[in-house]
Write a protein that binds this DNA or RNA. Structure first.
Lengths: 201, 201
DNA sequence: TTGCATCTCTGCATTGAGTGCACCTATGGT
DNA sequence: ACCATAGGTGCACTCAATGCAGAGATGCAA
């Protein structure tokens, strides 16, 4: 089990790295799944036993991230307001880029901006994450929040962050060569800006 | 021009109606673009000169709706608060189901819930609408809102509505036969629920 | 009416994502 | 050593989507 699992994890990482390199070099549309599989030295068919779609290779950490954010909600400090807790979870959700190849987050942002398919998948995952967090948020504050309010609140916070992110991406549209570091920092900063109004009460 | 335009509009409507009927009867995945085109009596290739993708046939009114919402923002009454104006625009955006075959909105909601591709496209369009509205909102309140705040605010309102919608869809998940009318009414009601907190200040 | 230009419709070929199936191989347990 | 199971792989297939080029209709001018 352990041996086989480690092998699978290694192949998975190889796929992500190969995809990163290829997307960087030949663009998203210019790279086929067959290319990625070949670069990672597996059969084309096997790619789809690691990732359900071509887009998903850009979100290899989605599950882990959501689980970590949920943990933050579950282990909330007593007396912390829902909105503040939500902000901490969202902040983690948007900034935890561990275990990923260098420049991966920046590449992903650029592809989010430029490739409709990537944007669609990202928004879908974001919504799922939002719902999952909302569910646990409602459980964490049974007195203050019913489920409907929790989802609406999570949606509002998520939407605000997303709006700020879009705004930053639009601005950097003019820079033909988007600086990876600046783009990532801006993403994190967007959270601060968007959530500021929520921290007052 | 007028003659040719009317012909195109008629074909377009025929496509939407054919797609509605086929999706209803054979499901989304069970219907091919060729089926839709054949039912509307045009060549398969021609379908893509009317809609850029299979999903887009489910959002034939997207442009008009966004334009109408933008008009609402542009013609805002003096003294109306940004959040209230935004609510009016969102309300219109989510409830204007004119010129569509009966049951179309309910079908769309069901497919949004069940088909990932439809969900992805819908979220994408929603984001675009949100950005467009935000741009004009910032223009309408140059004193109170800079562009970043406008986008964050629009994102928050949009997210809240979306969250409420998701919650309602989840609840109706248990009902195996979702009542179209109830589903649509619930969608409109969701807006009221989600936006209630924004109306107090 | 005739001719010319433009635009739409259409079929054909092609690419590439994604799936179902069947076979093979290797790993792990007995 | 043997067997059962699970992952890897090739093959064939479906379907969305695009590029291209030809056919046909339409509008305009002479």
């Amino acid at each position: 089990m352990s041996l086989i699992d480690r092998r699978r994890a290694r192949t998975r990482r190889a796929l992500v790295e190969a995809a990163t390199e290829l997307f960087e070099r030949k663009g998203y549309e210019g790279t086929t799944v067959a290319d990625i599989a070949a670069a990672a030295e597996i059969g084309t068919r096997t790619f789809f036993s690691y990732f359900a779609s071509k887009e998903d290779v850009l979100f290899p950490d989605a599950d882990a991230r959501v689980r970590a954010a949920v943990e933050i909600v579950k282990n909330h400090k007593a007396g912390e307001a829902p909105a503040q807790l939500l902000m901490r979870a969202m902040k983690y959700l948007a900034s935890a880029d561990n275990d990923l190849p260098g420049g991966f987050a920046a590449l992903r942002l650029r592809l989010f901006r430029d490739v409709p398919a990537v944007r669609g998948r990202a928004l879908q995952l974001l919504c799922e994450a939002m719902l999952e967090i909302a569910k646990h948020l409602a459980a964490a504050f049974p007195e203050q929040l019913d489920e409907a309010s929790a989802v609406a609140l999570s949606g509002a916070v998520t939407g605000a962050v997303l709006g700020a992110l879009y705004h930053l991406l639009e601005k950097s549209d003019q820079a033909l060569d988007p600086d990876p570091v600046a783009l990532c920092d801006a993403g994190r900063q967007a959270i601060q800006v968007a959530l500021a109004p929520w921290l007052r009460p």
